[in-house]
Amino acid sequence: MCAVAPGDQTLRGMVLAPQFVVGRQVRELHSRSRTCTEAPVKANDLGIGVLFDRLLDAVVIARLTTGRIVLWNPAAEKLFGYTAEEAIGRSIEMLMPEPVARVHRAGLERYLRSGHGLIVDADTPVEMPARTRRGEDIRIELSLSELHSRLGERFALAIIRDVTHRKQLELTSLELAEARVTRSDVEGAVNDRDELLAAVAASLQSAAGADELKGLGAALAEFKRLEAGEVRLFRQSADMVDVVHAACDAARSRAAGRRLLVYVPPTAPATCDVDRTREVLDTVLASALAHAPVDSRIMVSLEVLVTQTVQLTVQAEGGTEPQTQPLANVALYVGRSLMRRQAGNLSITISSGGSLQVVMTLPGSPQPPRRRLARPRSASRAMTVS
């Protein structure tokens, strides 16, 4: 109990004449009596003993009924900047930004009513913002549990760990990863430029005529527009089976004795600009026909990968002499740029034996596309063009 001081006229008046007590005086009395009756709490009273001062994590204990701090270990002083004398007796909300404090009040009320809370019931520490004595915002990991004294008083035990530096390290790691991706993109762009220049040089060295030079100029102009983002693409869901068969049908007149074998699944939905993708495939097939000798085979294989990617592979047998350039056809490199603008890719490989392989990839479509052509197909249909 708290004794009434002789000079305390406010308290004396409330004792002698309760009928004159107003709301403000009642609140003052409640606050004063609460301060007087809250006896100091020791770590041993809650069964945590010497561990309280030796833990490296900040440990803060508060009364559940008032939310006021009763125990404050050295690690908490180091983390938040308040000494134990400054912290004990104050509301735990002094460690919270105001938005978090509002959530805390609602959560405390819910816990006192139901015995359940988001942080208390969590299986792992919860990351959240906190505020130091100097007003700095930090990131912490918080674990909450309830303790009881020998007299049955209820307390909240908060174990707090500073994760600000870890978050900064994660941010730095993310920035480094982004820098590596950017560097990879730049290196890829430089490599693409070198390959394009090699193809242009090979085309010019092949004693190209006026028509070939005109086509070369048009291809370079298209490449420039693509790199500048001036070409609009209209991506939609499409069945690549239809696109492949239409392109191979058109290649029949240019086959000149070469056998064109086509293998496709029943359906291969992809997201792409159908007309632009067909242009790239026409260029790939034209290059394969030009590369393959007479009486050789050109294999076109379409498949849907488990990564929801549609992949088209065109393989052409080479001559007896392996070629030293990746194919002197600038249009192929323009096609690669077109495929990348559609979140796909196009790769060109020449084996040591001179065989050509072009691989095109496109993102799969989650929705079944409309069939553009009405023609029956089997699951693995081979077509020979001669």
Rank of each mutant, 00 (worst) to 15 (best):
A5K: 13
D239K: 01
V190E: 15
D8T: 12
A43Q: 07
S91A: 14
L261N: 07
D282T: 11
A247S: 07
R235E: 02
L112Q: 15
D211T: 14
G67R: 01
D192E: 15
P99Q: 00
H116Q: 12
A5P: 05
S380P: 04
G115I: 10
D53A: 13
L197W: 03
E317G: 13
R193T: 12
G7R: 09
A75P: 02
D295C: 06
C248P: 02
G152A: 10
A58S: 04
C248V: 15
L144N: 06
E153H: 09
H148E: 10
M14T: 14
G344V: 03
M128S: 00
R90P: 00
L373C: 10
G107F: 03
L373K: 09
E86K: 05
L220C: 11
Q323K: 08
A207Y: 10
V334R: 00
P376S: 13
L29G: 11
V314H: 01
E303V: 13
C36W: 06
I92P: 00
V22P: 07
H104V: 01
G135H: 03
R341G: 03
G217N: 06
L176N: 12
H165M: 10
R341E: 06
D123Q: 03
R235N: 02
V244W: 06
A292G: 03
G319F: 08
D57W: 01
G335D: 06
E178P: 06
L362R: 00
S378A: 14
T324C: 10
K78F: 05
V181M: 05
A207V: 09
H165P: 06
E28S: 12
T172C: 04
Q315V: 11
S31K: 10
V70D: 09
R258V: 01
E28D: 13
I350R: 14
S386A: 04
G354Y: 04
L171E: 15
D121V: 08
R232I: 05
M360D: 08
L112D: 05
D249Y: 07
D123I: 01
A76Y: 05
E321T: 09
G229L: 04
R27V: 15
G257V: 08
A221L: 12
M14P: 03
T283M: 08
A62N: 07
R105Q: 03
D8P: 08
V70I: 06
M383R: 09
G67L: 02
E227M: 14
A374E: 15
L327C: 05
R150H: 10
V26F: 13
E187T: 03
A247F: 07
A268N: 07
D53M: 04
R34L: 14
A218W: 04
R133M: 00
A62L: 07
R139L: 10
G335T: 04
E77W: 02
N44F: 14
T283G: 07
A270W: 02
R341D: 04
L108Y: 02
L305F: 11
L213Q: 15
G152W: 11
L169M: 15
R372N: 13
R258Q: 03
Q357T: 15
G135S: 03
P125C: 07
S184D: 15
R252D: 10
A331V: 05
Q19R: 14
A374P: 04
E141H: 02
R375Q: 13
V181L: 13
S91N: 09
V334D: 01
I138Q: 03
L29F: 15
L338S: 00
D242V: 04
S386Y: 09
Q342A: 02
S355Y: 09
A201Q: 07
P40S: 08
R297D: 15
R377I: 12
L46R: 07
N44H: 09
V334G: 00
D273N: 00
